[in-house]
């Protein structure tokens, strides 16, 4: 009995020592030299492995940063400028600043604005629905409401609102990784500059049909009347395919377009004050009169 115990101890110990030695030797022999900065940068990353940077994950991004030696083509949209500054410090190069972005859902076709004209009975994903037909509303361009974007979001920033049938964004959680943009078969979602204190103006519609057809399909759609484009003093609005597109790099947040839009398709968000339509209209009127005077 005693002998058995002693033998057991001896054998196990010997086995342990041998294996440890083998492991040690193998680890030395096959050691892979890796730039320690990759680890360092990876630690600075948000760690969501969302792929928003265009790489497979945070480590692949870190690897690419170190290999390039600069940050000209590498930017982590989730970590933003703060993180990139730290990465720049590790690499000892200049950080390239980018304006923080946010996902913007450009459709206002809620159940109330955009009545259903048929009932979709297939698999409840936008992708299948989009491949099948133009959708269960009169609008062939807007949100299909099956929530592929919600499923794609790894930050839990998107939620379907059962009342409107549209996704809603939690700006705090959005890392602007662009997964929802890719997931949306209709191209409704766009990454736009977040704007100062989150203030931004955008057209909440992507319907390319002509005015009358659009109006029939949805009460809150852009009808392509072009009033906004004519009024904008910053040249930020272009009317293309019957939709007004607001260039966020040029927009000065004056909100004139928003006040003039006849269907309310242009949205301004996160402004401290509610939109005073009359004041803005008066301002535009005064400016137009002045221009006329100058001309005369």
């Amino acid at each position: 009995m005693d002998i058995t115990i002693i033998w057991t101890i001896v054998v196990i110990t010997l086995l342990g020592v041998t294996l440890a030695a083998v492991l040690f030797l193998v680890a030395r022999k096959f050691r892979v030299e890796e730039d320690p900065r990759i680890d360092e940068i990876e630690k600075l990353m948000p760690g969501a492995n969302c792929g928003g940077c265009g790489f497979a994950g945070c480590r692949a991004f870190a690897d690419s940063c170190v290999k390039a030696g600069n940050l000209d083509n590498n930017f982590c949209p989730v970590g933003g400028n703060e993180t990139m500054k730290q990465v720049a410090a590790v690499l000892g190069c200049a950080a390239v600043e980018q304006a923080p972005k946010v996902a913007v859902i450009r459709c206002n076709g809620s159940c109330a604005n955009r009545p259903k004209v048929n009932e979709y009975d297939g698999l409840a994903t936008c992708r299948v629905k989009a491949a099948l037909y133009s959708g269960d509303t009169g609008c062939a361009y807007g949100c299909l409401g099956c929530g592929d974007c919600v499923a794609a979001c790894e930050n839990d920033a998107l939620k379907m609102n059962p009342e409107t049938g549209l996704p809603e964004l939690d700006e705090e959680k959005c890392g602007a990784c662009g997964k929802c943009v890719k997931a949306c078969p209709k191209g409704v979602i766009e990454l736009r500059n977040k704007g100062p204190r989150g203030m931004r103006v955008y057209t909440s519609c992507v319907n390319k049909d002509k005015g009358p057809a659009v109006k029939k399909a949805c009460a809150a759609a852009c009808i392509g009347c072009g009033i906004c484009a004519k009024t904008c003093t910053h040249g930020a609005i272009v009317l293309e395919n019957n939709v007004a597109y607001i260039d966020y790099t040029k927009c000065k947040l004056c909100r004139e377009c928003e006040a003039l839009c006849p269907t309310g398709a242009i949205h301004g968000v996160n402004f401290p004050k509610p939109l005073d339509k009359d004041a803005i209209k008066a301002r535009i009127k005064a400016r137009n009169e002045k221009a006329k005077e100058v001309q005369e």
Partner: peptide, 9 residues
């Protein structure tokens, strides 16, 4: 008439 159903085959 009710709304027509639409689904893939």
């Amino acid at each position: 008439m009710n709304k027509l159903l639409v689904s893939p085959s």
